[in-house]
């Protein structure tokens, strides 16, 4: 669906407490346009708990329950069971968590909820850091990236959450990116139409966390996809389909851009360029992405 045809109604209201250029609010606008107002949202500790604004105000026009950092999926399981008991089977239960709350501290509760077949949508908005606590490394932080806990650059690679999710063989999972509203909207609509556990991950470039200018959020997301640092795909009943530019990269119809095209605009990688270019670490990043795509091609072509 073209953006101009998206519903006009907004569930995330003006005057919320997000940073300028925040990808979470951009994504939330589209998420709510796709899911509609018959949605209950569960939010663990993450930036969104701040975006909600200060009690007694709220920037959300749907019911929201905040819950502890590691508990989003478990809390949502309880909400879902209760609503089902009340006969409210049409209400969408949405758990909305960051990458820290998903890849790290919340992975146990998430895995449990997926294994139990909980009828809900779990969305991880992935900005590759603990942003709300002030830019610490997470399991989603890429190799060589600066954070306040990896001051000379992360020495490990990020984990492949998509693989972990797919190992649960749930009816639907997908990776999307805030820079592709049509892709995001379509995947949300699809998730809403399927019963059982659904997992979506939204690449969400964070201006203060990644150290780029606030008007560049969309561009940073696009470059993540075009360089192959992030892939757009969906997995329906164990069948994986790549989407958009990621599909073209997978099928080698276009070349992915050099990772330098993405990282050179981000302050979190600036130590790879000055005072002297760190060709070794840039090459390591490049090779890691090549290996990722070789594996994708082996599995999904």
């Amino acid at each position: 669906m073209a953006i101009k045809d998206f519903p006009v109604e907004e569930c995330i209201l003006q005057g919320n407490a997000a940073c300028p250029g925040c990808p979470a609010t951009m994504a939330l606008r589209m998420v709510f346009k796709a899911l509609g107002k018959n949605t209950v949202m569960v939010v663990p500790a993450c930036c969104t708990a701040v975006i909600e604004s200060l009690y007694p105000h709220t920037s959300f026009d749907i019911p929201v329950m905040n819950i502890a950092f590691e508990a989003a999926a478990a809390g949502a399981s309880g909400v879902e069971a209760a609503l089902r008991m009340q006969g409210k089977k049409d209400t969408t239960v949405l758990a909305w968590a960051g990458d820290g709350g998903t890849y790290d501290i919340g992975i146990q509760a998430l895995s449990g909820a997926l294994e139990r077949g909980t009828n809900f949508i779990y969305i991880c908005y992935n900005n590759q850091i603990y942003s709300n606590t002030g830019i610490q490394r997470s399991g989603a932080t890429p190799y060589a990236a600066w954070t306040t806990t990896t001051v000379s650059g992360k020495t490990e690679f990020r984990k492949e959450m998509g693989d972990i999710i797919q190992a649960h063989h749930i009816p639907y999972s997908a990776q999307t990116c805030v820079s592709y509203p049509d892709d995001l909207y379509r995947k949300l609509k699809k998730a809403k139409s399927i019963k059982g556990p659904k997992y979506l991950e939204i690449m969400a470039p964070c201006p203060p966390g990644w150290r780029f200018s606030m008007e560049k959020t969309v561009e940073m997301g696009r470059m993540a996809v075009e360089t192959g640092a992030w892939a757009l795909y969906e997995c329906e009943n164990d069948v994986v389909t790549f989407n958009g530019k990621s599909k073209l990269i997978l099928e080698k119809k276009i070349e992915r851009k050099s990772i330098e095209e993405w990282i050179k605009y981000q302050g979190r990688f600036s130590h790879l360029f000055k005072p002297k270019k760190d060709t070794k670490r840039i090459q390591t990043l490049e090779d890691h992405i090549d290996q990722l795509w070789e594996r994708y091609r082996k599995c999904y072509l």
């Binding site: 569960v42 329950m65 508990a71 809390g75 309880g78 069971a81 009340q86």
Partner: peptide, 16 residues
């Protein structure tokens, strides 16, 4: 899958 989740799920259900 854990007592932490048991209480979290009870919280979600009770909140609903």
């Amino acid at each position: 899958e854990s007592e932490h989740s048991a209480m979290s799920a009870c919280i979600g259900a009770s909140a609903a």
